[in-house]
Amino acid sequence: MRTDHGGGGGTNGTEAELSDSLKTFGAVLKALREESGLTQEEFALRVRYSAAYVAKIEQGKRFPPADLPGRAEEVLGAAAVKVLTAAAKSLTRRAGLASWFRQWAGVEEEAISLYAYECRAVPGLLQPEAYIRAIMDRRLPPVSEEHVERQVTARLDRQQLFVARPNTTFSFVIEQGVLARRMGGREVTKHVINHLLDVGNRRNVEIQVMPIVQEDHCGIDGQLYLAETSAHQWIGYTEGQRSSNLISAPKDASVLLQRYGRLRAQALDCRATVKLLEQMRGAL
């Protein structure tokens, strides 16, 4: 699997630049926090993030959320926030992703609706860290530990979309077989199911499981992603072995939209999905 699901291609200069920029931003935030006489725990409480999350931002291991400067203004002061905002301008979430995925990532960040059907893996936006690492551990050819850490960071940073885009509608249809496979083992699968149940509680997120037995299944052509832009244009995205396809022609995007609508109707509804996930978790 590639891009959204596997984390992207090999190491490149852009990824190294992103890593350095994240560390620089983290160092700036730490210096400003310490200058204000605050511990990580005190700062985290005031900006309404967990202390662990703030620690990882300061260590350059997490992409800072877009609203961090705004939340920090009352805590650090306007002058400090100007410095923080300037440091943030050197960052781009897309730089840590595979080159062929970045264009879709840009669409994804601005979308007012995001739909995903997956028959191969849990969608990248829904992958907990343990699952991401399980995927990376099985990648061929093998990758370095440094590369794994960059890809884990990039994937988890993308998931900040749920926080940054509270008015975006997210819809996911996932094949039951993806979870039944138990990628990474029982404990990893428990993490995945717990994460799906947790994210599915968000008001703007719908998660549906496609049962293994479904005679009217229309997903034979494989996974698909759809995004609605602010101009109400639909754009599709599909992916194969070391390749991807951005679909912007209205007639082709319409085909994917029709198929996704049918897939949603064929999958279990959200309540039935929760019941099935709880049953699967209990059987582990």
Score class of each variant (00 low, 15 high):
residue 1 M to S: 02
residue 2 R to P: 14
residue 3 T to R: 05
residue 3 T to C: 02
residue 3 T to A: 10
residue 5 H to M: 15
residue 10 G to V: 08
residue 10 G to L: 06
residue 11 T to C: 01
residue 12 N to D: 15
residue 16 A to I: 14
residue 16 A to V: 14
residue 18 L to H: 01
residue 19 S to I: 05
residue 22 L to D: 06
residue 23 K to P: 05
residue 26 G to C: 05
residue 32 L to S: 00
residue 32 L to E: 07
residue 34 E to F: 05
residue 36 S to W: 00
residue 36 S to Y: 00
residue 37 G to C: 11
residue 38 L to A: 02
residue 38 L to M: 12
residue 38 L to F: 09
residue 42 E to Q: 15
residue 46 R to N: 07
residue 49 Y to H: 09
residue 53 Y to I: 06
residue 53 Y to Q: 08
residue 54 V to K: 01
residue 56 K to S: 09
residue 56 K to V: 01
residue 60 G to Y: 11
residue 61 K to Y: 06
residue 67 D to W: 15
residue 74 E to L: 11
residue 85 T to F: 11
residue 90 S to P: 12
residue 93 R to G: 12
residue 94 R to T: 06
residue 96 G to N: 01
residue 98 A to G: 14
residue 98 A to E: 06
residue 100 W to Q: 01
residue 103 Q to L: 15
residue 110 E to M: 13
residue 112 I to G: 05
residue 115 Y to H: 12
residue 117 Y to I: 09
residue 117 Y to N: 09
residue 119 C to Y: 09
residue 119 C to T: 11
residue 122 V to P: 09
residue 125 L to H: 00
residue 132 I to V: 12
residue 133 R to I: 12
residue 133 R to P: 15
residue 135 I to N: 08
residue 136 M to V: 08
residue 137 D to I: 04
residue 138 R to F: 00
residue 140 L to F: 04
residue 142 P to F: 04
residue 142 P to C: 03
residue 143 V to R: 08
residue 144 S to I: 10
residue 146 E to R: 05
residue 148 V to W: 07
residue 148 V to N: 03
residue 149 E to T: 04
residue 149 E to C: 04
residue 152 V to C: 03
residue 152 V to Y: 04
residue 154 A to D: 03
residue 156 L to A: 01
residue 165 R to G: 00
residue 166 P to W: 05
residue 171 S to R: 10
residue 174 I to P: 09
residue 174 I to A: 03
residue 179 L to Q: 07
residue 182 R to T: 10
residue 182 R to I: 06
residue 184 G to H: 13
residue 185 G to S: 05
residue 186 R to H: 13
residue 191 H to T: 07
residue 192 V to C: 07
residue 193 I to Q: 07
residue 194 N to V: 00
residue 199 V to M: 14
residue 200 G to Q: 04
residue 202 R to C: 03
residue 203 R to W: 10
residue 206 E to C: 01
residue 209 V to Q: 00
residue 213 V to F: 15
residue 213 V to Y: 13
residue 214 Q to M: 13
residue 220 I to N: 03
residue 228 E to K: 13
residue 229 T to L: 14
residue 231 A to L: 15
residue 233 Q to G: 06
residue 239 E to M: 07
residue 241 Q to F: 15
residue 241 Q to P: 12
residue 241 Q to M: 13
residue 244 S to T: 08
residue 246 L to C: 04
residue 249 A to H: 10
residue 250 P to H: 01
residue 251 K to R: 12
residue 251 K to L: 11
residue 252 D to G: 00
residue 253 A to F: 10
residue 253 A to I: 02
residue 254 S to E: 15
residue 257 L to G: 08
residue 257 L to C: 10
residue 258 Q to S: 13
residue 260 Y to F: 15
residue 262 R to Y: 13
residue 263 L to W: 11
residue 265 A to Q: 14
residue 267 A to T: 02
residue 274 V to W: 02
residue 274 V to P: 03
residue 274 V to E: 12
residue 275 K to R: 11
residue 276 L to A: 01
residue 278 E to W: 08
residue 284 L to P: 10
residue 284 L to M: 13
